[in-house]
Each structure stands twice: as structure tokens, then as C-alpha cells.
Design a protein around this nucleic acid. Structure first.
Lengths: 149, 149
DNA sequence: CTTATTCCTACTATACCACAAGGTTAGTAG
DNA sequence: CTACTAACCTTGTGGTATAGTAGGAATAAG
């Protein structure tokens, strides 16, 4: 279980774009040099971001990319779900909250995966691109609380 | 980013063993039939559990496996870390809390990965095998709280 | 001694990751 | 108008991980 470079690079692209949002369209070449990531790989990744309208593109000379919205309008969860294709899925297709599968044991652990999934997504959705750029994560501790239903 | 079958099957083995702990040593054949998982794959997975002394084994006829400790003594995090080989590592080797890497942008997102890692591990460590078997997860809601340092 | 089981090594097929290569299209500076 | 630049598209590739399979050797019970 880990987060691949795809998602991390996507985040770094977005952070870079957010940091230099005053400079208009920024070419991948610049980002690639600044972030020390292969240009060709970046092309593939920003393609995903672009098709989802997370970034705006401009072709031709002095073209490049810029953020479509304000950096506080992006939450990290959506960026990661887009590029990684979902977070922490346990991929137990025959096992849903409604239709529980034949094996009682598998379904015993189902709530665990569901909780984990919610936890990760909730956290990642609570952090905005702006939070990252402003470095707001460092001065807060994060605790889990359990509440009776 | 996802949890592979290895970790999930390992958990299902442990749950199965916990549910039938009164029955002495339980053979993989039985578990394989009950859980509908290939015997051969199960052998590989329980080998990991066995070498880490999570389970006790008995060879020969009427041999099998049983839990080494009480089910409340196991937390899910340790089972998953063992079989999955670590949870949510971002694998940025050049980027640690002490030695921060050359790229300021990468390190901007580092606190995010660190928080995520802590969050996942804290949650998984807070759940015991007994909690799963007893179905204690369903009647609790889980919330994230942010506390100023 | 037979049978049932763990235990060990090796093999395989598929998929995904992390790129690289090469060319095409579109927009802009001069 | 032309040259250049940069996005965009398709395809390929080496490596690693996943999810198993196969076959056999060691061991203990009956």
C-alpha cells in the first residue's frame, strides 16, 4: 500500500503552479527543471489534470499551464483520487454495505476497510492546495476520535 | 494506493483463527475452504505470520495453526505492516524530517504524507483483532480533530 | 507405515509503474 | 508569413509487484 509517484508528482505540479500563479502560463519545461522530474512523464500526468479541467492549457509559443481555480478551491483528496484512481480501495467487489457476501468472516473486516477509506478521504479532503503552499500543516496535531452512534 | 490481497487474506486468516480458537490447531485446508482462498497462496501468507510468531504451527497429521496470543493482544496495524510491508509510505527517501531535500516544493508536501502515515497507522493500531471478531467497529463513528501545537 | 499436514524453493502470467521516443497540431513572436 | 515553441497524441519498454501455481521434503499422529 503506497502512493505512487503519479499522485505525488501531480501534487507537486499543482503546488508549483500555485506558487507561481502570478506568472501566467507556465511551461512544463520550467516545471520539469524546477521539480527535477522528467518532462515526458510530466506530460502524461498533467494530461490527466488537464482533461479533468484542474488546469488550463495554452498551446504554442509562450504557452503552458495555469490553475483553473483559486488554490484554496482545490482539496488534495480530489487531486489524488484523480491521478491515483481512488484511495485505499479494498477492491472487494462482492462485498458492499448493502449486499454482504457469503463469507461472514470477510464481512467482519469490511467495516475496517470502510472506516479506513473514510478516514483517509476525509483527511485528504480537509486539506487544500493553499494549506500546502502556506505550510499550514506543520503547526497542527491530528487526532482520531471515536464517537458512539 | 490500495491494500493488496496479501494483507487482507492475512487478516482473514487471523480472524478465522480467532473465531475458532477453542478448536486447537486448525489446518490451512479448512481455512482455505472456509475462506474460499487458494491453499497454496494461503501457505505463503501464513508463512510470514508464522515466522513473525503471530501464529503457532504444528506439523504432521492433525497439525495446523493457532493464534500465539489472545485476540485482544493483536492490533490490525501490526498484522498489515507485517504482510504489506509498511503502510502508506511515500517512499521519498531523500526527504526526511531531519534532512530536507533540495526542492522546497517537495518538502512543502512532506508534512501531508507524514500526517497521512500517522493517521492510518494510528487508526489501524487502535483496532484489535478482538474488535473485528466482536463486530465493535460498526457502532462507532470516527472523526478527525485538529489540535494546535 | 501410511496419511495428513506444514514447510521450502522455484516458477509463471499478468498488470502496473515510471518513464522514453517520435511525431502532430496549434498558437505566437518576430 | 514563417519559424519556433510548446502542448498533445500514440506507442514502446524495462523493471518490479501481485497473485498466485507446482512439486516435493520434513514431520508428526494414528
Amino acid at each position: 500500500m503506497m502512493i505512487s509517484t503519479k499522485g505525488r508528482y501531480a501534487l507537486r505540479i499543482m503546488v508549483d503552479l500555485a506558487q507561481h500563479k502570478e506568472e501566467g502560463f507556465i511551461s512544463l519545461k520550467i516545471i520539469s527543471e524546477r521539480q527535477e522530474i522528467s518532462l515526458k512523464y510530466l506530460e502524461a500526468i498533467i494530461g490527466i489534470l488537464n482533461r479533468a479541467n484542474f488546469v488550463k492549457s495554452m498551446r504554442g509559443k509562450s504557452g503552458g499551464y495555469k490553475l483553473q481555480r483559486e488554490s484554496k478551491e482545490y482539496n488534495i483528496g480530489s487531486i489524488l483520487r484523480l491521478t491515483e484512481g481512488g484511495l485505499v480501495p479494498v477492491n472487494c467487489s462482492n462485498c458492499t454495505p448493502e449486499h454482504s457476501c457469503a463469507r461472514g468472516d470477510e464481512c467482519l473486516s469490511y467495516p475496517l476497510w470502510e472506516n479506513l477509506d473514510r478516514l483517509v478521504n476525509d483527511y485528504l479532503d480537509s486539506v487544500s492546495l493553499e494549506d500546502i503552499v502556506e505550510g499550514r500543516l506543520v503547526d497542527k496535531d491530528i487526532v482520531i476520535k471515536f464517537v458512539d452512534r
